[in-house]
Simulated scan of single mutants.
Amino acid sequence: MQDIILNIIRGLPSTIGLTIAALSIGLVLGVPLMLARISKHFWLRLTAMALITFVRSIPPIVWLFVIFFGLGSGYLRVAPFPAAVVGLGLIASAYMAEIYRGALLSIHRGQWEGAAALGMHPFRMWIDVIMPQLIRVALPAMATYAIGLLKDTAIASTIGVSEMTFYANQSSMATYRGLEVFSFVALLYIALSLPVAWMSRSIDARMRKKVSR
């Protein structure tokens, strides 16, 4: 069993790296997508809404197959790990845009009006007034999505990414000890998820304490 455990742990860096990379893409690209979604221009709102709906309507595994087997079958060669990052990052962008939008809509209009009445520059208004509240509201949903994304990285094994599930499947087929192998993998996913949940609650508590002062 020790050899099996060591074999599975080999995929731990890929699992963590894939999660961080895809989530980073989502956190960054979700912002302009959210801004387009709430734009005053109808065509921009419609385009963003259509794009978000389109991305979220297709299962993650299909996106990975399209990027890896579809694009990779032509002149553009895509390695498994970058293909998984692009696919999961694209999906994360759509979900994060909606999380941002929901958090933004929850901010009372009086916050905008108060900042404007004080003569704050729009940029400072966003940085000092709107963003801290937006992050505080969006944080629980962001943490929940991050944990879900961590689990979704398991599907990257279907295109050859050497993450934990990939090595677990190899060990299971080689030893016929599937129950022990995948039980250990399940424990690893739980161990990785708990710090994310704890960190989210800790940051949320600190932000609430800061706001209440």
Rank of each mutant, 00 (worst) to 15 (best):
S157H: 02
I38L: 12
T144H: 09
I203G: 07
Q111S: 02
F123K: 07
T53S: 14
W43R: 04
Q170A: 12
S93V: 01
S162Q: 14
L6E: 07
R56W: 00
I38G: 04
R109Y: 01
H121A: 14
G102L: 10
G26D: 08
R109A: 12
S73Q: 15
M125N: 09
I20Q: 04
I107D: 09
F42H: 11
A103I: 00
G70W: 01
T175L: 04
D3E: 13
S193C: 05
M49Q: 12
I20R: 05
L23A: 13
E163D: 03
I99S: 01
R10K: 15
L134M: 15
R37M: 09
K209Y: 11
T158S: 14
G26F: 03
R45F: 02
I5V: 13
N7H: 10
E163Y: 07
I5N: 03
A143R: 01
L18M: 14
V137R: 00
I91K: 02
R45D: 03
L44R: 01
R45N: 15
P60E: 13
Y95V: 10
L149Y: 05
G30P: 01
I147R: 07
T19N: 06
P59D: 12
Y176C: 00
I5L: 04
Q170W: 11
L118D: 02
A138Q: 09
A168N: 04
I190M: 13
F42P: 02
S183R: 08
W43C: 05
W126E: 02
I16G: 06
F68S: 06
R101V: 02
G17Y: 06
I107T: 06
T19Q: 04
I135S: 03
G178K: 08
V185C: 08
A197Y: 11
P80G: 13
P195T: 08
V28Y: 11
S183W: 09
I9V: 15
A205W: 09
I8C: 00
F69T: 06
F69L: 13
A154N: 12
V129K: 05
